[in-house]
Write a protein that binds this DNA or RNA. Structure first.
Lengths: 329, 329
DNA sequence: TTGTACGCGTTATCAT
DNA sequence: ATGATAACGCGTACAA
């Protein structure tokens, strides 16, 4: 490995000057700079980020913890966080907690002292554990508001309300809610919202599930809905909704005439590309870039900053979801 | 931040002893060990992995570069690599190259000096650039065999041959190949294999596409196939295949009677759960854990090891794909 | 078994 | 503008 000292020696300057060439280019004479750079890439010098991190007291590494890496829901978030973070000169380390609360905090412990901050996406851990982590380093949560932690969340309630009203307007009175996955914090909230809104409008909502958030689980659920005699369904998830539609198509049921289908999120952005579904589009990409920006803001702040100053300015950002009306409803 | 020195002072021992308690527990007296541990977690000591990395000359960090994070194809690979790597006490940093060759090597440059090794999954970069990276640190490629770099790849050719023979046996003579995505290295290979095998058996293969690897792109392609009068299609990808099937169901075309559908990979493992498709199952999870193991093996080797020793033992692991016969064919 | 002292590669302070 | 030097936190010969 070729070090800064090697470059300095080769260029005939001190290692301090060589260091400045890369860190503070303007603090060094134009010609010396040229010489050093020349020497550097002749020797193939690459800065050792570990040493730099130790000297500067920060690693330039940020963490993102998601419950499921392969989830279509988080894909745009992950992508956006990565863009945002790299744009600010940080590196991103993405970890999959596999939906397991204990592993979330286990991950936080492992990452401690290695990253400058962490984003927890839809964390399932107890708030206390997250707060504990937040005292160790900057933390931003997504879809989870905790008193002392910056957060950005998507307001599905608004879109869901709009959706329920749409269904009522369309004449539906009995509406199925097909929920999932088991253990999801947001599932209950969605059901309750639907029940309230629809109940207030003289309708009734039947809760089915929970089912796995997969196409086949959706397909298998169709008969259940048909037996219950429902003609409108709100699916937890676009995969489930498409399973329903797929099964409906194969048994000759018409959408939306025989069964109106809607979903709480869509899959347009993530390469599945099934646009005509009536769904609540959640701006996960936007959420990701906002969360990324918030974390960078915290992490970039000189570590000497008075902790109290940071504690007093907790942000809770809420992004609106929008109802996209397709042909399935 | 509480350092090892703090712990040592608190415990009344030297920092060397404190260090050994965590690194070489057996080299320290039982009671001193207890005291140090006591002091450590009373102070809430967490080892600074940056400093450790600098001192030991390795970071305990491995990198995984994928062309697309949200791809259902790579999801099981990513998951497996992560498991494997964590099992060996490493941390994994996952980066999305967005399918852009330049960004692959750009990433390699950025990660240099920060990670102990990298896995490139289905890299599109020129071989020379990858070889260059491989001289800087341990590298393993997936689905790309380069002379001097360890690799593990999945042999789709075998499964595809089998599939073609199946279609021929079923009586098909004119078979469509619906390819994509643009720029994929493997796409050409698949088409050529299909043409060769089917041609050898007196059949003919028509190439369509490339199309985006999405469900909707598949759905939109159906009419194209119907106009061409084909009754059997091999889709690049299971998403595309399901788009075709979805479109077929809605226009009343029967699968497999009117149109036999097969795909080169499936989506069973990744939460889409659509099992009845005839498809070539690629063991991406297995590939991931093997690649992870290979990289760990390289990275864990003491850095003082003679470079020549490592250079002479390049491994190219090839995993078989298997044809899974569903109802669509 | 334990302590002393040095090195890892870089940045930052303080001279010059 | 540049150079000497002290950190940064930890591992590890080497000595005791």
């Amino acid at each position: 490995m070729v070090t800064l000292a090697d470059v300095a020696r080769q260029a005939g300057v001190s290692s301090a000057t060589a260091s400045r060439v890369f860190g503070r280019p303007d603090m060094v004479g134009a010609e010396t700079r040229a010489i050093v750079i020349e020497a550097a890439d002749r020797l193939g010098y690459v800065a050792n980020s570990t040493a730099r991190a130790l000297a500067m007291g920060s690693s330039g590494l940020l963490g993102l913890v998601v419950p499921q890496l392969s989830s279509s829901y988080f894909a745009p978030l992950i992508s956006a966080v990565q863009s945002e973070v790299e744009r600010s000169g940080f590196e991103l380390i993405i970890v999959d907690s596999r939906g397991c609360p204990e592993s979330e905090i286990e991950i936080a412990r492992r990452l401690r002292g290695r990253v400058d901050g962490i984003i927890f996406a839809s964390p399932r851990s107890p708030g206390a554990a997250l707060a504990e982590a937040a005292r160790a380093f900057p933390v931003v949560t997504v879809n989870r508001e905790l008193p002392d932690i910056d957060s950005v969340s998507v307001d599905v309630i608004a879109g869901l309300t709009e959706l329920c009203e749409l269904l009522i307007t369309a004449g539906h009175r009995t509406i199925a809610y097909l929920g999932g996955p088991p253990g999801s914090i947001s599932d209950d909230g969605r059901f309750l919202t639907a029940r309230t809104v629809i109940g207030d409008n003289g309708g009734e909502v039947l809760r089915f599930g929970p089912v796995e958030p997969t196409v086949s689980a959706g397909a298998e659920s169709l008969s259940m809905l048909q037996e219950a005699g429902v003609h409108a369904v709100i699916a937890y998830n676009a995969l489930v909704a498409h399973g329903l539609m797929f099964a409906a198509a194969t048994v000759g049921a018409r959408v939306p005439d025989d069964l109106a289908v809607a979903a709480v999120d869509d899959l347009i952005d993530i390469g599945l590309g099934l646009p005509s579904l009536t769904a609540i589009t959640q701006p996960m990409g936007e959420a990701g870039s906002r969360a990324g920006r918030m974390l960078v803001g915290q992490a970039a702040r000189p570590s000497g900053t008075d902790p109290d100053t940071r504690a007093r300015t907790i942000q809770h950002l809420v992004l609106p979801s929008t109802l996209v009306i397709g042909e399935t409803c």
